[in-house]
Simulated assay, not measured.
Amino acid sequence: MVTADPVVTGMAWSTPLGRDLAEVWDRLCAGETGVTVVPSRHRLRADLAATLADPPYGRKPGERMVDLATEVLSEAAAGLDLSDPRIGLVLGTSFGALLETDDPADWCREVARRVGAAHPPVMVSTACSTGTDTLLAAQALMRSGRLRACVTGAVDILTEAKRLGHSVLATMSPTALRAFDSDHDGTMLGEGAAFLVLESASSARARGARVHATLRGSGSANDAYGLTAPDPTGSSVITTLRRCLAAAGLSPDQVAVVSAHGTGTPLNDEVEARSLAEFFGVSGPVVFATKGALGHSLGATGAIEAIGTILALKQRRVPPVANLTDPVPSLNLPGDKGAAIKGGIGLSLTLGFGGFNTCLAFERQDAR
């Protein structure tokens, strides 16, 4: 049994604002967004979305998804021999291209084959918390002693089926994603991929790997309330936060920053804001959200936001919340220029359809 916290030694992403970690972070901090008009063959609630550089409907969805996951995973795992039997893969997606394929596990088996992985991958699909749950699962595998390293993350792409589904649910804003703003009226779909390498500290030292952060702990809970709507009391969100900090051996006052789920839907925002305010109190940590700029990439969002949390800790700053003009008063939100942060602990929180709530606690490498 391995009890030491795993460290993050590799990170890569593909977002609507680009692929370079530092460049994307700088663009976020400058207030840029990747939202654009995306034509559709159907009448949708919104013709806006945040897409990657290649046209979203230029190729078959399954091909785009596998290619994207393979490219980003390979970049994150550069320097690792994935044929090593003590290195595993934990891959996730929400729907991705699964509505257009016969076998929902085909894509991750193909990614594992392309990168030469020693084992079949573990596949995770827990709605919008998928990306976060891949790290939770990888942490468990690491702590069990079965693996010395794990490449973990998620991918999701924009498809007509997803746009139609969210139009029917009336969850999409026709104009902009305004997380934690009084005028919030829905989310904005996006796409992307993000992968991280979790590794034991001894393995990282042995190969001279650069350490970005430590995954101190994780926590999860389920609302058991409804298929799409969160429990309006927020009790499950608070349980998730409490379990995460307990697993990490931390107290709420040690948290410097929280990457919130921030979908821009009124009910989700209200539940999340109320839960964070109740848990942390009046002078809580800085809370930021990136979906207004990057779109809501569903299954990939948790992995993208995990990297965003680590970058916020490393850079000691957070970007502004896109489209925020009349913020809710209960949270410590950044201004239109972003905000500096003090301290070395950050949380990444995701709240998924079906009540899947997960939180990760990261510590900046030089914080101790």
Rank of each mutant, 00 (worst) to 15 (best):
A118N: 09
C108G: 07
G262S: 14
T358D: 04
V151W: 02
V7K: 06
L311A: 13
S125D: 05
A194C: 08
I310E: 06
P319F: 07
L313C: 08
T301F: 01
L245Y: 05
K314R: 14
A193D: 07
L196G: 03
L48F: 12
D326N: 15
G295V: 10
P174M: 06
I341H: 07
G116T: 12
R210T: 13
T132R: 01
A224E: 08
D54Y: 02
V155E: 11
G281Q: 12
R146I: 03
C359K: 01
R317V: 13
A204N: 06
A12Y: 03
L44T: 11
D231A: 14
Y57H: 12
V211R: 13
H184C: 15
A277E: 06
T134D: 02
V111G: 06
V24I: 11
E75I: 07
T134G: 03
K60S: 13
E278D: 12
V287H: 06
A248H: 04
R146A: 15
Q139G: 12
V211P: 01
D26Q: 10
Q139E: 14
A367F: 09
L17Y: 07
A12I: 09
H42Y: 11
G192E: 00
E191Y: 04
A247V: 05
G190H: 07
E270R: 15
G264I: 08
A117R: 05
P174R: 08
G116H: 12
K162N: 09
M11E: 05
L360I: 11
A30V: 03
F195G: 02
D106M: 12
A118D: 08
N323I: 01
F195H: 04
L158R: 01
H119G: 00
A176F: 11
N332H: 15
G34Q: 05
P85C: 04
A149Q: 14
T214S: 13
G295A: 10
R109S: 08
P174E: 07
P6L: 08
D185L: 03
A221Y: 07
S83D: 13
L333F: 09
A53I: 10
A50M: 05
V257I: 14
F362L: 10
K314I: 05
V328Y: 01
S259D: 12
A69T: 10
A247Q: 13
R316Y: 04
V37G: 02
V321Q: 02
L177P: 01
